[in-house]
Design a binder for these strands. Sequence first.
DNA 1: CATGAATGAGTCTTCATTCAT
DNA 2: AATGAATGAAGACTCATTCAT
Lengths: 206, 206, 206, 206
Amino acid sequence: MARAPRTTVRKAPTQARAQETVETILAATARVLARDGYDRASTNKVAEAAGVSIGSLYQYFPSKEALVSALIERHMSRMLQVLTDAGAALPLGGTVRQATRQIIAASYAAHRVNPKLHRVLLEQVPRIGTMGSIDTFEERTLTLVEAFLSMHASELRRSNLKLAAKVAVLAVRGTTLYCVLRSPELLYEEEFIDEVTDMIVRYLEA
Amino acid sequence: MARAPRTTVRKAPTQARAQETVETILAATARVLARDGYDRASTNKVAEAAGVSIGSLYQYFPSKEALVSALIERHMSRMLQVLTDAGAALPLGGTVRQATRQIIAASYAAHRVNPKLHRVLLEQVPRIGTMGSIDTFEERTLTLVEAFLSMHASELRRSNLKLAAKVAVLAVRGTTLYCVLRSPELLYEEEFIDEVTDMIVRYLEA
Amino acid sequence: MARAPRTTVRKAPTQARAQETVETILAATARVLARDGYDRASTNKVAEAAGVSIGSLYQYFPSKEALVSALIERHMSRMLQVLTDAGAALPLGGTVRQATRQIIAASYAAHRVNPKLHRVLLEQVPRIGTMGSIDTFEERTLTLVEAFLSMHASELRRSNLKLAAKVAVLAVRGTTLYCVLRSPELLYEEEFIDEVTDMIVRYLEA
Amino acid sequence: MARAPRTTVRKAPTQARAQETVETILAATARVLARDGYDRASTNKVAEAAGVSIGSLYQYFPSKEALVSALIERHMSRMLQVLTDAGAALPLGGTVRQATRQIIAASYAAHRVNPKLHRVLLEQVPRIGTMGSIDTFEERTLTLVEAFLSMHASELRRSNLKLAAKVAVLAVRGTTLYCVLRSPELLYEEEFIDEVTDMIVRYLEA
DNA sequence: CATGAATGAGTCTTCATTCAT
DNA sequence: AATGAATGAAGACTCATTCAT
């Protein structure tokens, strides 16, 4: 179980085949993690599941942690992508309710990327070095919300917008977390999202 | 997710000395878990930290998982106790805001039991057999809230009280989770609790 | 698993109750050995099965080996008793066939003492210090047979009686061994014993 | 008798180096077993004796029992080979005595394969999963004898040939067992084999 | 680049045995 | 005497990682 081994990717694969191999390995990692849990998931199992030799695996990932990190990284960056895409399209000119709805919906959309994997990562993976990507996601969301709030400051009844932003974000996060862990299908229910939106809007509006 | 080993306590200690040993071991478990994380926490380290032989540890806990399970169980039951105590004192005759404040405060109080340990358990412990106690906590909270809501139905503007209860609980949970994981001192700030209460009350009231 | 610990009984129980305890423990040993095999049979399990504390067990048997040794000893001495009883009654004046039949029958009778236990001892117990009792049994048989042969020397066609005795004893032993290990009910079949007798008589007679 | 762990070989070695390793390990197993007995023979000791890492051992044998099983298997198959080779040359046209002599001699030859190891296996090894190979050996012998008896039926005075075959085989087995356990040099003495043959022939012939 | 045999530190766990009560 | 809590040496086994081929 070593002590704090390297965590970065050993080598950026340039050739197409190498890129494929990396993909295969990451996919296998996700599968094995889901099947066996973090503890019982061994690099050898992953290599076998990927149909790749253990040597090859270590060609691309210098340690088990690097492997899992890469998986997390990739997943979070995809979620971030979805969040950003949906957030970038923000009709900042719309009503507070509309905008709020859109931001919340964007977060839900991001959580729809691969809820099963997300759950496994949350449940099975002990916090690892580069867990930073998760914070990145949360911070990005917070930044988005704060920006939005300050733009609509006049319509809102809050004095301490920073605090309000944080509470709002955390409240929404409570709901998405629940969805991912216990009820993934809720991520797709517009009514549920509406309900959450309603709570947030009432909280924020003057 | 692999076959789970036994997870129950092996032997109910009868002598006083034995009871002490169990306590010592659980305390050491918490310490080692916090220091090294679940993976790097070995049963031998725990025994050593407890000043107890590895044999004694296994006399009472048949596996590493049983050990951690017992710790979780104990922690959650303490939290539950605090929640129940604070919830039992519910001034059901008070205003919605007062009652809401009290329930939320009760939850915060429960999370103040041992946030450091709570965080370790959340972050480090891959899901283990008897994780049921956590669900118990959440369900108890939900029950409490639902009961409260139906008592004050006339003052609330929600038709779907069950949904409202769930959303409210999840929202609050988002905030306590954040506190435990990133900002334990927030658990003690009345203003923060007020803010959260405000959100929930606005959401629920007619 | 210690190195060559004491093997003798620690203390000859004088009181009736103590004698009973010893019996209980030996019976439990037999049971546990049959159930779990020698390796998985622990002294703690035996104590529990006997309804006796582990401390008490060690009061009477100073080691695991001593425990098993005592069991073997007791079993073999019982077999020896049966063999001797049946052999002592030898009608040395009878025909060679009659006498042979009786000796062989005596051996079969001895093997009927507790074939199940005998099998367990044969299969499960790695050779232990005082395994001497088994040799004792075989030597006693051999002595018996040699005595018998020299008495009937005139009726036999063998010159090397010692060799003949050995071969005869080993041949019979081959059959009893088979019975104990694979077919205990054969120990009770007169026809089978007759057949074996026939072989031996034909081998010995002039 | 408890649940048996896996007993088959874990991995068929493909590279020459691996094949060598397997051989080395089996040889070391035999040595350590002979030196220390089954109980005191640990997988670590075996690995060390083989000059191989414990990891390598487990690469090929998933458990201690599998290791010993493989050794038994190999030994028995060698004995079987010798038995079959010598039995295949049966001069079925010869006299009963000649044929009997040859079969018995074949069995003795088989027991000469590695009597020291054979003894260790008999004495030290608690019955293990794939003990089947031993039964195979006995059954093969029995089949051989039965076939032989029925071919020579006219020259024999037995009506129940099956019974006769069994008794004869068991009698011979009694002698080989003795040789292996107490007197290996007897396996090489023609006179002894003659004596045994004499007994069997007298038993069978008309 | 890929392969997979080899490594060995370290893990969980058992169990014979002791000894304070 | 009896009890059973405590001990700790030792064993079976895993798995991240390396490196010769």
